[in-house]
């Protein structure tokens, strides 16, 4: 690679991510006030929720990339789609993990079926992991096309899953989930926003890095083919 553009932009985003994440960690653990009810475990919230929202952003990016791929049939949209979904799966798996830790600390159990968000994320992880299975079973242009279609299907089923789980729970145990979210003092909100922006920057950095790596891989592959073709037999 002779151009420095993509490398420099990744370095910039990486630096921003590092600064913001450090700020978020310091803020969340040392600066933000301790939650009166939940104590220290509440601090996982700054990351848990930020990671969860970021994973949804990743899936939304993949959805848009999928729609654009179907319209334009340009390879780059497929690449954005697959990288976003990979990152989305990573982030939602982390969401389930941090949520489970939180559940253990606040309710004494690792898994709580009555928490609709946790259960929805588990479903979402399953849904998007199968995206990779679809990809590995199809080749060529069709792989990109089917992946794009599935990224639309999966994105449509996220809200449906959430809603179904939530409705089912509300019939069985009414009013469970009003903890967190709405009533946050301003000092907490600030650190939550910092953490959220940090996670989004992390997503963008990883997305760009992975896309660059794919491009380099592809260029390398083409170079190899050319070399082999020019070698005297």
């Amino acid at each position: 690679m002779t151009e420095t553009g993509p490398g420099r932009s990744i370095a910039l985003w990486g630096t921003l991510t590092a600064v913001l994440s450090t700020a978020a960690i310091v803020g969340a653990f040392l600066v933000a006030p301790e939650d009166a009810d939940q104590g220290i475990i509440q601090r996982i919230f700054y990351f848990h929720v930020a990671i969860a929202i970021t994973s949804m952003v990743a899936f939304a990016v993949a959805f848009v990339a999928g729609v654009l791929y179907l319209r334009k049939r340009e390879r780059r949209f497929d690449e954005i789609g697959v990288v976003s979904i990979g990152l989305g799966v990573l982030f939602s798996a982390l969401t389930v993990l941090t949520g489970s830790i939180w559940a253990k600390a606040s309710w004494g159990i690792w898994w709580q079926w009555s928490d609709p968000r946790l259960v929805t994320y588990a479903i979402v992880v399953l849904l998007y992991v199968s995206y990779f299975m679809l990809r590995s079973s199809v080749d060529g242009e069709r792989q990109a096309r089917y992946s794009a279609i599935f990224s639309v299907v999966a994105f449509a089923s996220v809200p449906l899953s959430f809603y179904a789980v939530r409705v089912a729970q509300s019939f069985i145990h009414p009013v469970v989930f009003t903890q967190s979210g709405a009533n946050m003092p301003n000092t907490m909100l600030v650190w939550f926003v910092v953490s959220q922006v940090a996670m989004l920057c992390l997503f963008i950095t990883l997305l760009k890095l992975e896309l660059l790596q794919r491009r380099v891989d592809q260029a390398l592959g083409e170079l190899k083919l050319r070399l082999e073709a020019s070698r005297p037999v």
Binding site: I123, L134, S137, R142, V153, S157, S161, A164, V167
Partner: peptide, 30 residues
Amino acid sequence: LLAAMAVFSRARELLLPVLFLPALLPVIIA
């Protein structure tokens, strides 16, 4: 929709349940 994609891919017998069942969970719940 999913069968049309799965049937013309490799590993289709395994692929379809893996694609279809997670998306069917809301139907099972409701």
